[in-house]
């Protein structure tokens, strides 16, 4: 398993364990494609307040793109998504509300 795959698995597990995030995301069912510029893609799936890494998906609701290092930093909590997003090092495509929700999840999940 790659380092990013391992980080995403821990991110999904932390989301699912976090009661507040489970409540916030109870009605948020989304498929997220995490696409490193320099490696194979990964898929995150949110449903009923729980998150999981899945093997493959269909049409994604959100696409998160960047270098493996940037994605690794964001999903591990080493850095916040805002600055790489504003600088263009992180690219997120999807509905604006979904993009903001993913920002908020990333900001809330680490340090609780």
């Amino acid at each position: 398993m790659s380092q990013l795959a391992d980080t995403l698995a821990r991110f999904a597990e932390a989301c699912s364990r976090n009661e507040r995030l489970r409540q916030m995301n109870h009605d948020w069912n989304r498929l997220i494609l995490v696409q490193p510029d320099d490696a194979d893609p990964h898929w995150l799936f949110y449903q009923g307040g729980e998150a999981a890494v899945v093997e493959e998906g269909g049409e994604p609701d959100l696409i998160v793109e960047g270098s493996s290092a940037v994605l690794q930093n964001i999903f591990s909590g080493a850095s916040t998504p805002t600055e790489p997003y504003m600088s263009g090092d992180l690219r997120v495509r999807g509905a604006q509300d979904d993009v903001m929700r993913l920002d908020i999840i990333a900001l809330l999940i680490w340090g609780e």
Binding site: M24, T82, R101, D103
Partner: peptide, 28 residues
């Protein structure tokens, strides 16, 4: 502000969430 159906029910939770979110959200 974010279309997340999560009512914040105490001032303490508002302050806690504010301290986590506001420093980043104001940059958007």
């Amino acid at each position: 502000s974010a279309r997340i159906d999560y009512p914040i029910r105490t001032l303490a939770e508002l302050a806690e969430l504010g301290q986590r979110l506001v420093p980043e959200m104001v940059k958007l």
